[in-house]
Design a protein around this nucleic acid. Structure first.
Lengths: 183, 183
DNA sequence: GTCTATACTAGGATAGAC
DNA sequence: GTCTATCCTAGTATAGAC
């Protein structure tokens, strides 16, 4: 089994259980690989798995979230395209965001740098779309931050209330959060 | 040592480390009590600690977040009062929200009901202020949800980027999120 | 590259003395 | 109500065979 098959499994485990909640035994069961096989792929254990997962996710962010924002389509169309990917990646709010479980306790200091790199890339790409529509650099940045805040907050509030309509509504409002009044 | 002294310690541990990340040994060290003393207070162990903590937090939510919204002050004033409490409770974004660490993995099913009760109480209180300003029930609810989404998302994005100005900005915008255009 | 077996540590929980 | 001592399980990690 190759890492490209392992990493999607790791994503599902870490995003649902959080860094502390995932054990090698869980991973072994989920992947069907024995513990020793896992240590063959990741000699430094769970910490290395998380690091490589975050690298993998960084690529996925660029490919799935950022790329639709860098096409030559209409600004609002770019954002609705992104929003659709977001809705499906988080399965309508039923799947957690990796950030939550990777920024608790000691994991926070271990992975904060990697996480912020992905988050910054995404925010910047959304801000660029806002700038394209004539917003100032400062306002574009704020609106892009607000879009990410809405996504992350929407996930938390949806799962806290058990009402996933909230996430759906939030995702649909993303283009407006970034662009309203500037098209 | 009484539970009223223990619970604030538990809050700090669980909000920072998450349910899975907290061990009895951590709690023992943080409180200065031996393991057996902790089991004397909480015979069912960590799960009971979390349950009682969430009860305690439910009271704190009503007292600190909801109560300022039920005074006879001006609507916007109620929300700025609440926002100030929020900023200090989360230490300007540097302290996590309990929800994050209590809704990962198995903890989610254990505590979701208790969490949603507190969250609903808070949302409803914010919605009532919006209704007081003439918003429809449906719009008031949406705006109250958006306020909580902003708080929770602001915490996540602040810690993911390491930039706590974001949380500060979000907290200051709370009254506008709930009331703008209806005063 | 994967397995079985094993070592060791940390975490959860209890018994019984004071 | 708190302590020391202990038990058991789960978790991390490694050795060595195939």
């Amino acid at each position: 089994m190759s890492k490209q098959e392992l990493l999607p499994e790791l994503l599902e485990l870490f995003r649902q259980q959080g860094y502390d909640g995932v054990s090698i035994a869980h991973i072994s069961k989920a992947t069907g690989l024995g513990k020793s096989s896992l240590y063959h792929h990741f000699p430094e254990g769970k910490e290395q798995m998380a690091r490589e997962l975050l690298e993998y996710i960084h690529g996925a962010v660029k490919q799935h979230f950022v790329a639709p924002l860098k096409t030559d389509k209409e600004p609002r169309k770019k954002l609705t395209d992104m929003a659709q990917v977001v809705e499906s990646f988080y399965d309508g709010g039923r799947k957690w965001c990796l950030i939550d479980g990777m920024t608790l306790g000691e994991a926070n200091s271990l992975f904060q740098a990697q996480i912020s790199r992905s988050v910054e890339a995404w925010i910047q790409a959304m801000a660029d779309v806002a700038i394209e529509c004539g917003l100032s650099k400062k306002m574009a940045r704020e609106r892009a931050e607000n879009a990410l805040i809405a996504i992350e907050g929407g996930l938390i509030v949806s799962r806290a209330t058990g009402n996933y309509q909230i996430f759906k509504r939030v995702v649909r409002s993303l283009p407006s959060i970034v662009l309203d009044g500037h098209e």
